[in-house]
Each structure stands twice: as C-alpha cells, then as structure tokens.
Design a protein around this nucleic acid. Structure first.
Lengths: 336, 336
DNA sequence: AATTTCTTTGCAACCGGTTGCAATTTTTTC
DNA sequence: GAAAAAATTGCAACCGGTTGCAAAGAAATT
C-alpha cells in the first residue's frame, strides 16, 4: 500500500542507503543524489515510516503522558501545553488515562511495549514510587506536579507545596483573619499532605487558630460542596483555604446557599487559578500554580533525559503567587 | 537493553516462532511449549515490542485523536472517554493538537508517518474536507462532532445541529418568549451555521422574532461576555440562545453586570451541558449533547473501520435534550 | 601527474517481531 | 497396529527502515 524506500531508490536509480540518507539529518549525500531522490520521493508521495525507523534506531519519538485527573479544568491547560510543546519538537504524546488505578505495573508494561522514549507522570496524587517504577524499568521519567524530596531519584517538576500552604496562612494573617479552616483535597495525595503541613505550621507561627480541618475525597465541585456543609457546623470560621479551585467553588456555593456572603461573612482562598476563578460569579482569590512554566520545563527535561539518560535527578520548583480577586477581604495596611 | 524474542527462545529451548506464537492470539502452540515459553519469558521479564510487531503486521493499534479546542471543559469529557474507551480495547490514543491550523496536509503526513490505524477528528469547527483528507490518504477516519451531509464519504458521529437549533426555538416558544436573540459560536463553524439555520427557520415558523444575531469568535467565557455587551444594545431581547455553555456563562455575567436578573429580565439557553452549567452560580438551562454516546460510538466505528476499511460511510446522530435548570422561565401550561 | 586526503556510495547485516510452508509429531480412525 | 487426519514446530523470508565498513570517486596537495 504505502510507498517504501526501495521503490524510491529504484525510481531514483540509487541504493536504498542513499534514500535513507537523504532523509536523515546530517548524513552524507551529494547534492546531485539528494536532488534525484527528492524528485522521486515527491513523485511517489513517499513518507518514511517512523515505525520502521524506530525499530532500527531504537527511538520512537513517543512520549507517554500519564494522568489521572481528567475532570479538572486545570488539566485542559496541561493537555494543551503538553501536546503543543511536544509537537514543536517533533515528538508525540501517547496519552494514558490512569482512571483510578494506582499501581504502576500495568502502565510500565504498556509504555515499554510501545517503547516510548520517555514518560511524563502528571499527577499530584500519586506517591513518588509510581514514577520511580518507570525509572526502574529503564524509561526516562519526569514526575510533574510531584513531591519534592531531598533524596529523590526521579526528576520532579512542580511547586513547593509545603511552602504554598505556608503562603496561604500568611495571606490569611495579612488580612487579619484569626480563626481559619482547611478544606483540603484528597487526604492521601502528597500535595495535600505537604500543603496541610505548611499551612498548620505557619498558622501556628503567626498565631492563627485552625478551627476545622476537612478533606474532600476528590477534586470536584460536588466534593467541595459536601465538605463545606460539614465545615459549616463550626461557627467561628472566618476564612477557608481550599486545596483546589473546583473544590473551593463548590464550597463557596454551599456557603452562599447557607446565606453567608463572601467575603463579608466568610473568606475563601483557592488553589490553581483555573479559568473559572476569574469569572464574576466567583471572583476567587487563589494561589496560582504556574502551569505553563511547569509544563515547558517538564518537556524540556524529558527531552534532555532522552538524550542523556544518566543525567542526575533534578528538582525544579516554581514559585506560586496569590492572585487577588474578591473572595478574601483586603490586606490590612501597615497603619490600621 | 530490552529482552527480545530470541533470548526467550534460547532459554526455553524452542524456536523464535514458538515464542511469537505463544504471544499471538489464537496461534497454534501446544500446552507444553506454551508453558516453557511463559516460564522463560517471566524469568527474563520479556515484553513483546509493539514496534516490531507493528512493522510485521502493519497494524500499530494507535488511533490518532485530533482536536482543536483544548480550552473548553467539554473536551475534558472527550479526552477522558476517548482514552479510557480506547484503552479498554487495547488501543492507544495519539493526541494531535491542531492549535489554530486548519489545513489537514501536515497532519495527514504526520499520522501517516506514525502509521496510525485510524483517526478520530473531533471538532465541530472544521469543514468536512478536513476529515476527508485522511480518507483520501487511505487512513480510516471518523469525523466526530462533524456535519451531517447526505452525500458524505466520511463517517460522521454527532448530532443534528439544524435540529438542535430548531429545538432551541421551540423551547423558547414553549415558555412564551417572543422576542429572542442568537449568540452563536464562531460563525465559520459548520455547527454554528446549521444551528443558526434551524433556529431561524423554526423561530419563523412559530412566530418568534429574532431581534438580534451575534457570533462570538471563539468558545470562551470572554468572547461570550463581549458579544453580550453588543447584544444588550438591543433593548427588546427576552431570551438568548447561546452556541456554547462557556459563551453563555460569559453572556449571563455580562447581563448580570448590567443589572439584569435571570430569568426574570432575560432568559438564557446554553449548549453542551458542561459540568459548570449545573453549578448554583449559573444554574443554566441548556441543550445537552450526549458526549458519552458520541464518543463510544466513534470509537466503536473507528475500530470497525480498521477491521473493514471499505465499510460504507455511516452517519450516526444522537438526540439532544433540554436540561431544565433555572435560566429560562418555566413552560407555559396548556391552560394558562 | 602522482599521491594523499576527504566525500560519497552501495553492500549487507541488523532492529524485533510475524507467517507461509513443509516436515514432524500427535491424535484419531478403522 | 497401520493409515489417515490434525496439530505442532522450525525454517527462512519478510516488514521498512539504519548504519558500519570497504570500495570508488572527487578534491586537494606536492
């Protein structure tokens, strides 16, 4: 069906090697030969088969992209950036949907079968051991949104969650909140644990009291709503730090439904800065995770890994920033 | 590096064919041989290379998934369903991000190089000719969310947009609206054109007057907001039919910002039924597109195409339904 | 013009599987 | 227990490229 090297070679009156070389970067071919080959290739509509090339070169230019959160709008950005960034470099993403699975075994096998050149594990809810399994299997891997660990043996690109939790507490303190609550994401997620730790530590340091602590069991509006219902049993909460914008919006709606106004009666601080956070209906003050930087850096790193697999593991953390909108009361000036 | 067939064969004391056959569905191997091979394979950690297999069988089990709308939450469902549905069948999605490009040439070449078994073009904004280009190149293709055409030569799975537009007009009429407006998606999209046609035709038939007609230039909240500002110059609008929920939410916020209340002062009817439509802040009455059915059917069809490429082009249209929430006033009873 | 050096070219082996075919082994039949 | 039928096995060619190597050709040097 498809046109092959051999046919092009015959038509151009050269050897198969010559054809191969005209299509390989930096190979040695004379201008005359190249011209003949290109003409023949064009005439025949020849496209080199990447499959065959992969077999010979042991490189597929396929990068696995494994994710387990296909319902959060934050992942729209992730997919968009990943695909276009890989595309720019002539690579292709092979999408893997974990959908609930937490054991890497099956997926390591799968990606090995496809001989992907590298894998990006984009999730904040899985332990480091997950990404590690790819490493062990000899597949270059980056754990994007992963946990920062001093003794890491896997590349990690993301943020310092502990620090972000701390930042949330400081933000509350700056605005004069004293009695605050935490509405975290799934409790087992490393990101949740770290943020919680940072939040509690700094709250303590700054004299805030964390009067309630609840965890949503997934990153959804509904989970946020339900968790907030729980939280409202505690009367004294002045502000809530949420583990995710989606959860936060659910929580805000629960508060509104209970007759509270935001930020007068209760303040909310989100996490991620998804597009909806900027919508009038929520106008959510939130901690922005620099997804673009994280993705670009991850892609760059995975490409680097493919070229030099023995590169020693790097941790790349990007700073988060508070995006001020309307769900928290304003900062207290120095003279008030 | 990786373990190969040959090594397994040697360890098991059989021929390479025998090993190959133990790993091929329905091939003829005795229980004794199979056992020996499996033991050797396990010991060595053997994984057959799909690349090599692809070269020999001319099947890659790769399905291209091309999309150009990575910012709409509706696509979260699309990606989720596509990936998990393919996964179930032992296939893999190769994601392609059109990001603005509208010429198929580059992408046909790309997907041919990867020898994908089939392609799903998931977009409502590109002409039929786009999907057609794959067909012409000999790649089985499904145009998901594509335009229904009587003389189609490409499989199409989606909805009847003309009919949906009509449904919108009928919905307005049922609730006693008389003076209505259209806030469409991108004007060049076939889906927009068809819905507009249906909406205008039925409005006319039912005696509604369409007092304004505007098109957002992309499927975003912002575009909806801006378009609504335009629309509000027309004083007499009682209800707006939007080409997309995201656009609709932007429009609703523009209306609210202008002091209108929904649905008392103005009604809104969305399209798609994304998750946010159900959120309290919007409580959007919208026309639901059965994305799950559409995706499942597309996958099933593309698999069918791979097995029998000469299958004649099918059109599969699924019905849309109005999801009643709070952005339109209630239906007028027969006796009021 | 002869020698040396640098490029270009084709040959042939290889990447890791599959598969038609003929030979061999096993099972069934009488 | 022999003949016929069915199942299993290995050989070898093939899928469509790449690449090390040696031979051939072109360019540079003396």
């Amino acid at each position: 069906m498809a046109v092959t090297l051999k046919e092009v070679a015959e038509r151009a009156g050269v050897s198969r090697s010559a054809v191969s070389r005209t299509f390989t970067e930096g190979a040695s071919v004379s201008a005359r030969t190249r011209e003949k080959v290109e003409k023949a290739a064009k005439a025949l509509g020849y496209q080199p088969s990447l499959i065959a090339r992969s077999l010979a070169t042991n490189r597929t230019k396929l990068i696995g992209l494994v994710a387990n959160n296909f319902q959060n709008p934050a992942f729209l950005d992730v997919f968009d950036l990943f695909t276009s960034e890989l595309q720019k470099r002539g690579l292709r993403p092979l999408l893997v949907n974990l959908s609930g699975d937490t054991s890497p075994k099956k997926f390591v096998e799968l990606l090995r079968q496809y001989s992907v050149d590298g894998v990006i594990v984009a999730t904040s809810t899985l332990p480091t051991s997950f990404a590690n399994a790819f490493q062990t299997a000899g597949i270059p891997v980056i754990h994007t949104f992963g946990k920062y660990q001093a003794n890491a043996n896997v590349h990690v690109v993301g943020i310092n969650n502990e620090h972000c939790g701390s930042m949330a507490a400081r933000t509350f303190a700056d605005r004069g909140y004293r009695s605050v609550a935490l509405l975290g994401g799934p409790e087992t997620a490393t990101s949740t644990k770290d943020r919680t730790a940072g939040f509690l530590r700094t709250s303590n340091e700054l004299g805030l009291s964390v009067v309630a602590k609840v965890f949503a069991d997934n990153y959804t509006y509904r989970a946020g709503r339900e968790a907030m219902a729980d939280l409202m049993k505690t009367e004294t909460i002045e502000a809530v730090f949420c583990g995710d914008d989606l959860i936060c919006m659910g929580a805000m709606d629960a508060a509104k439904a209970a007759g509270k106004s935001i930020p007068q009666d209760i303040g909310f601080l989100g996490f991620n800065d998804i597009a909806m956070a900027g919508w009038d209906a929520y106008s959510l003050t939130t901690i922005r995770q620099p997804i673009r930087d994280i993705i670009m850096s991850s892609v760059e790193l995975v490409v680097g890994m493919v070229e030099n697999p023995d590169r020693s593991p790097e941790i790349r953390l990007f700073p988060c920033t508070v995006i001020d909108r309307g769900s928290l009361r304003p900062t207290i000036g120095p003279d008030s």
